[in-house]
């Protein structure tokens, strides 16, 4: 019996080996490169370099952009996820499908399409000037970058929110209003606490890609707002400075770990919430 159960567990061995080779070992190399110089000697210089004001500002800026994008996503997604639960099951299914459908198109091309919309001589401004108003400068601003993040990651907020909300027992809502809650209070006191798991998982799914993106800021920010992702990408693809890039990734990983820890403190359940 013991032998058999061992054999059964051994079925997981390829995966465990794979994980050691291609998940743990690569992370070890990030740490290794982060704390060595070009000749492979141990050093703290790479990390120390990040303490410069300009790098600190990049970190702060990325945090801020990602935070704002997440908040905006939450504000937009919450009502729509709630409204979606009110529809008939069939409509709900179609709505969810419609929310996910844009994700099937490559995000690079969708972002590029936003560029065509936002440029000074772009589609929106052409429409505005055709109506006779002054064109609005939108591209290459921080707003455009945040818009790109919100656009690309909004579905990752809507879906988990919706799936949690649709599981809320509708009798609870009825009970709350029977017991004298106003419509608004039902939402704040019943729906909101019960949808916390969805909020947490949505926030994670928007915040993590937002803080590490490098394409959106390059295209919609015109390279004027370097984010962490841009800086890391540059070290690997152009500047050929793996050590600095690795140390930056290391710090990014720590930032994300901290934010996850903070969030999971409020999530209660630790099951990773909902996977789309």
């Amino acid at each position: 019996m013991n032998k058999k159960s061992l054999l059964q567990k051994a079925v997981a061995a390829p995966h465990v080996m794979w994980a050691v080779l291609f998940i743990i070992a690569p992370l070890f190399f990030v740490v290794y490169y982060a704390f060595t110089d070009k000749d492979g000697n141990f050093t703290f210089d790479n990390i120390a370099e990040l303490a410069q004001a300009s790098y600190l500002e990049i970190f702060l800026r990325s945090l801020c952009f990602a935070f704002l994008a997440t908040v905006i996503c939450l504000i937009i997604a919450y009502p729509i996820a709630y409204f979606m639960t009110k529809a008939s099951p069939k409509t709900q299914k179609i709505l969810i499908m419609l929310v996910m459908l844009p994700q099937w198109l490559n995000f690079l091309i969708r972002t590029y399409s936003w560029m065509a919309l936002l440029e000074d001589t772009g589609i929106i401004n052409n429409l505005i000037t055709a109506v006779g108003l002054d064109p609005v400068h939108m591209i290459n601003t921080s707003g455009a970058v945040i818009l790109g993040m919100v656009y690309n990651y909004l579905p990752y907020m809507i879906i988990p929110l919706h799936s949690v909300m649709s599981k809320i027992d509708s009798r609870l809502l009825e009970a709350a209003s029977d017991l004298g809650c106003s419509h608004f209070k039902v939402i704040t006191r019943v729906v909101f606490p019960l949808s916390m798991a969805g909020i947490i998982s949505g926030v994670t799914m928007v915040f993590v890609p937002s803080i590490s993106t490098f394409y959106i800021s390059q295209k919609l920010g015109g390279g004027n707002f370097d984010l962490i992702g841009d800086t890391i990408e540059r070290q690997f693809q152009t500047a050929y400075n793996y050590n600095l890039g690795a140390s930056m990734s290391f710090v990014l990983m720590i930032i994300i770990m901290i934010s996850m820890a903070v969030m999971s403190k409020y999530s209660g359940e630790d099951d990773g919430g909902v996977i789309v």
């Binding site: 190399f29 890609p209 793996y242 990734s249 990014l252 994300i256």
Partner: peptide, 20 residues
């Protein structure tokens, strides 16, 4: 350990594998 690639930002997964 299994969940790491889901939690980590894509760019970190990418560069960590590249370094390997």
């Amino acid at each position: 350990v299994t969940k790491i690639p889901m939690m980590n930002p894509e760019i970190v997964t990418g560069i960590s594998m590249m370094l390997l």
